[in-house]
Simulated scan of single mutants.
Amino acid sequence: MISISSNLNLMIKAAEKASKSVIRDFGELEKLQVSKKGPRDFVTKTDKHVENILIEELSKAKKNFSFLSEEVGKIENKDKENIWIIDPIDGTTNFLHGIPHFAICIALKSQKEIISGLVFDPIKDEMFYAEKNKGAYLNNQRLRVSNKNLIDECLFSSNHEGVKFSNLNMRYSGCAALDLAYVASGRFDGYFHNKINIWDVAAGALLVKEAGGIVNDLDKFNTNNIDIRASSGAINDKMLENLKNF
């Protein structure tokens, strides 16, 4: 068993607890697809519920840490140097349509730097996590980015705009956090996206770096307007060359 910090341990426990209601609600969705009220209100409720569980669990052990979250925005507590960045469900549209590809994301920013990150896919039971200078893992297995260096053999991911723009081999999965986790694990070779939010990419960017990949400097951007470029070192220059006008 690898040794992890108490903070990461706390993040894992919080994500596991929150995932129980996500899995239960996901199972309920099929019944809702046919109801008049429709699933959209339901998903918003799930999102808020998961966020509440995460905030509650993380606050138990770290009462003073601040929060930045997709649903509630900023919560400033006594400790403003340590900030939990959370996205209760990244990939809500997938969730809404009963597609089992979404994730719970938690990152810890300390002294302006992401030091711990977690992306949990509750349906596939895949827990991706990383700590600064300690490597990236999937369910206790060490992760490495891919080492393919022929761009035609590589597979990249982006959002709708990126897929339209690019002549690379592309996927559009609808879940940025898992896209980055997949780059870290070598399933994808690179990921790029313009104007994305910090809570979608904070944990995943650390995963990619700790798995030996390259991520551009996200601090240059506003928290809700990030242009991210992440890939293995082997293909980074070629990917960026292809994205010059993106």
Rank of each mutant, 00 (worst) to 15 (best):
I4T: 11
L8P: 13
L8Q: 07
N9S: 15
L10P: 02
M11S: 05
S19A: 13
S19Y: 12
K20C: 04
K20H: 09
S21Y: 10
R24M: 09
G27K: 15
G27W: 03
L29Y: 15
Q33G: 06
S35L: 10
K36I: 06
P39K: 09
P39Q: 03
R40F: 09
D41L: 12
D41G: 13
F42C: 03
V43G: 08
D47Y: 12
V50G: 08
I53L: 07
I55A: 10
L58K: 10
K60Y: 12
K62Y: 15
K63P: 15
S69V: 10
E71D: 04
K74Y: 15
I75V: 12
I75A: 02
E76Q: 15
E76K: 15
E81M: 11
I85E: 02
I86Y: 03
D90A: 08
D90S: 11
G91T: 02
T93I: 10
N94L: 01
F95T: 02
L96R: 14
H97A: 05
G98S: 08
I99M: 13
H101T: 00
F102G: 01
A103L: 09
C105G: 03
A107L: 05
K109A: 10
Q111M: 12
E113K: 13
I114V: 15
G117F: 03
V119H: 00
D121W: 08
D121E: 02
I123L: 15
K124Q: 11
E126K: 14
Y129A: 03
A130R: 05
N133Y: 13
G135V: 11
L138V: 13
L138A: 08
L138E: 02
N140V: 07
L143E: 02
R144C: 05
S146G: 13
N147G: 04
N149T: 14
N149H: 10
L150M: 13
I151K: 00
D152I: 12
E153A: 10
C154W: 11
L155S: 09
S157E: 06
E161W: 03
G162A: 04
G162Y: 00
G162S: 01
V163M: 07
F165T: 00
N167R: 14
N167V: 08
N167W: 02
R171E: 00
Y172M: 01
G174S: 07
C175V: 00
A177C: 06
L178A: 04
D179K: 00
D179C: 04
A181K: 05
V183N: 00
S185Q: 14
D189N: 14
F192Q: 09
N194K: 15
L206P: 00
K209I: 11
G212S: 10
D217V: 03
L218T: 07
F221G: 00
N222Y: 12
T223A: 06
D227T: 13
S231G: 07
G233A: 13
I235E: 05
D237V: 04
K238L: 14
M239G: 02
N242V: 08
N242G: 04
K244W: 04
N245K: 13
N245H: 15
